[in-house]
Amino acid sequence: MRILRHRLFWPAAALVTLLVVNTIANPNFARITIRDGQLYGNPITILRDSAPLMLVALGMTLVIATRGIDLSVGAIMAVSGAVALTIIDDSPNPGSVGTVVVAVIVAVVVGLVLGVWNGFLVSVIGIQPIIATLVLMLAGRGVALLITGGEITTVNSAPYKFIASGYLIILPIAFFIWVAAVVVVSMLERRTALGMLTESVGINPEASRLAGVRSRGIIWSAYIASGVLAGIAGVIYASNTMAADANSAGYLIELYAILAVVLGGTSLMGGKFSIAGTVIGVMTVQALEKAILFLGVPPAQAPVFFAVVVVVVVLLQAPRVHAWGRAAGRRMGVGAKPRTDDRKEVAA
């Protein structure tokens, strides 16, 4: 029964359930085919399409761990995508690899600068994270619209398109990008003391300050990481559509990212975070989207299902529900008790 107590058990169980439902609803779901040495199929599409959300959720995990929240990631995605495509569009040679490399680097640096800005407002000026990032969330799309001149800039550049739709060996390159990001962030957080310090700042800022933790730099770096990752996500998103649409790029992604982080068992109260949990959470959100599609619900009505999921997840984390669960467990005997304890662990 030890596996039941692992804090990733319930998030993983939810994901597996969704995948099974998908496969039952549509047996073709799980089919993977090989063409020209490249894998195709729904699971591969999920791995590829989850790249922007995965990158954003990864940054969001770090920010949430410091008791913060970053609402501006969608706007940063819009800006970085607009920057990349505008550079390629304005260059005399949009198809050359050099142009694309410059465009990508500039776009990611723009994400970094915006992350520095958010982190400055939160860690130096001391503004509440929701509000500090709300400023950029409001203004960012306006900036993106100015960069694109209010139009949807479309470009034709084979190397740039390759970022989202190309394949490396047998798997999509976007998949490798997010795997690399996950590995780098995990190494930085878990192979050094950074992760522990981040958690200590999130659990009790005052106590960690008294213990000599320099919280300012740690909080600041979380927002910078979030900005950079959102910048990369913007590049991938723009590469997928090959059009800089300042209004729809990254629209609502901050909310889906927060949902994915919470689904993965990281509490919004800050403190303990789980990168593996976030990966599972993102996959769950993507699988849920596919499930809604397969069950024949029009995509526009999908938010109702997400609302139900959000409510169920937060209720499972709520102390009052735990109390009810324990009370029910006592009435029914000891059998149900470990389950409720386990949920509490997920919430904690």
Partner: peptide, 20 residues
């Protein structure tokens, strides 16, 4: 009654209203 942060609770309301 369930100690959900206002941000998340009203986020569910946002999804719900838009979907409905």
């Amino acid at each position: 009654y369930f100690n959900v942060q206002p941000f998340i609770a009203s986020l569910a309301g946002l999804f719900l209203g838009r979907g409905l």
